[in-house]
């Protein structure tokens, strides 16, 4: 188990360094934007990973609603949390990029706007999840919300696009017209970010699972203690009022 984790972290670390090498040194400056293109490698790949992680969150939420395994809910919520992080990175890098290009930190560019709304959608998710008592109920409610939110994303995107289509596509971020070395750097950044995502998801899910396991173990210890106390008092049934101190449940 530990070996696998070390290997995973090592691979992600190497990928991260290589990604920075390609982004900052390997790829040439762009014709019109110059070195600003380098932000794009991080911006675009974190945006993609953000979308991916919300999709994963919704998928596992659906699985949870069908199968009711706690692990599915843990994966779903961890993925949404990581998605919020990537969305934040997207927004910050987008802003950094927009300032020199459009001469403003913020424009009502459809993609930027959609991303911001997306951020709010999932901050709402985190608030909702954080404020509900009861594990099962929390899982069900946040699962339903995760599904609704993902279904809403394309609608938001198109609506914002129709609403504000005055901005020309400054750059085609899909990168079809990029030179090969830039495209390579972008793809590499995507792969590296994906690896980071997978690692974070694994760590976070494991953490949640361990937390629940710990909780369960603590309960079981309490029960064992309670039963032991029960055995020491064989005539407990004669004293109904004493039964109140006996924990219930068993294994």
């Amino acid at each position: 188990m530990t070996k696998r984790w070390i290997a995973g972290i090592g691979v992600v670390g190497i990928l991260g360094w290589l990604c920075q090498y390609f982004a900052f040194i390997g790829s040439p400056p762009e014709k019109s934007m110059g070195n600003l293109i380098r932000i794009l490698y991080f911006h675009a790949s974190s945006a993609w990973i953000a979308f991916l992680s919300f999709g994963v969150a919704a998928f596992f939420a659906l699985c949870y609603l069908i199968r009711r395994r706690p692990i599915l809910d843990q994966i779903s919520s961890s993925s949404a949390e990581i998605g919020v992080m990537y969305t934040t990175v997207t927004l910050i890098t987008g802003s950094l990029w927009a300032k020199p290009i459009w001469n403003a930190w913020w424009t009502w560019d459809p993609r930027l706007t959609t991303t911001l709304i997306l951020w709010f959608l999932y901050v709402g998710y985190l608030l909702l999840r954080g404020s509900i008592e009861g594990l099962e109920r929390r899982a069900v409610v946040s699962g339903v919300y995760a599904i609704i939110a993902v279904a809403d994303v394309p609608v938001i995107h198109f609506a914002v696009e129709w609403w504000n289509s005055i901005h020309p596509q400054v750059i085609d971020e899909t990168g079809i017209n990029m030179p090969g070395s830039m495209l390579f750097a972008l793809m590499f950044a995507f792969v590296a970010f994906f690896a980071i995502y997978v690692l974070l998801l694994a760590v976070r899910t494991r953490q949640e699972a361990q937390r629940q396991r710990l909780y369960r173990l603590r309960r079981e210890i309490q029960e064992v203690r309670g039963r032991a106390a029960d055995k020491l008092q064989p005539d407990i049934s004669a004293h109904p009022q004493l039964q109140m101190s006996v924990p219930k449940g068993s294994k």
Partner: peptide
Amino acid sequence: KEYNLRPVLE
């Protein structure tokens, strides 16, 4: 039936 991973009925 479990509430918060705690068995109530088994």
